[in-house]
Design a protein around this nucleic acid. Structure first.
Length: 202
DNA sequence: CTATGATCATCC
DNA sequence: GGATGATCATAG
């Protein structure tokens, strides 16, 4: 499926409750009291007729599916609930790859962001809010992301991979991520301020 | 066991 | 409420 087509079909889902769709499509949201964290993504994939694929980059070919949770503040304002994982950091790869050719940039160019409204850990319902493309034609975003990438490279080079922390970066941060239990892997995450720009245009 | 996607837990 | 680090589910 082409990216454009996926975007168009995705948009036709806006306003729908992904929870009821999950039931209709036979997607498991909870299993033995535990949440299947990938359920919302699975619903979208199934709806679009895509294979449930967890493999790395070859995702769906010309584009990638990402999900972001939104939530309402007490003031009633809608905001981004969480940062978004983009891709794993490979120290060697990052050190030897300029931003223009980085895995990070390739991912950003391809991704389609599906924003859903999160209402609680028990997922009473979840409305699809919108579908977005990552706008890298926006100079300000592009340049700042590039700076963040360069900062990560510099940090690895001067202080080592383990010096990377989630505190680094303005739009993109290198955050620990792994199976836990002492894992030291890191991944690029999109910070909330960046997601807000893309989703709410501010 | 590890990679990946995404969310949870905790600290401020 | 927001940020950072840790964990969970699943596939290979």
């Amino acid at each position: 499926m082409e990216r454009k087509e996926a975007l168009r079909k995705g948009k036709s889902l806006i306003g729908k409750d992904l929870r009821t769709l999950a039931d209709e499509l036979g997607i498991t949201v909870f299993r033995e009291g535990k949440k299947n964290k990938g359920w919302a993504g699975h619903v979208i994939e199934r709806y679009l007729g895509l294979p449930l694929n967890s493999a790395q980059s070859p995702n769906f070919g010309s584009w990638e599916l990402k999900l972001v949770s939104l939530k309402y503040l007490k003031t009633g304002e809608l905001t981004v609930k969480e940062t978004m994982a983009i891709t794993m950091i490979d120290a060697y790869n990052v050190l030897n790859t300029p931003f223009e050719e980085s895995h990070l940039l390739q991912k950003l160019k391809k991704m389609l962001i599906f924003a859903r409204i999160w209402e609680g850990k028990n997922e009473p319902r979840s409305i699809l809010y919108g579908v977005y493309e990552f706008d890298l034609t926006n100079k300000e975003l592009y340049e700042q992301i590039k700076k963040d990438y360069e900062l990560v490279r510099k940090t690895i080079k001067e202080k080592g991979f383990n010096a990377l922390t989630g505190k680094i970066g303005v739009y993109i941060q290198p955050r620990t991520k792994g199976t836990g239990h002492g894992s030291t892997t890191r991944a690029f995450y999109a910070r909330k301020n960046l997601l807000k720009k893309i989703i709410f245009g501010k």
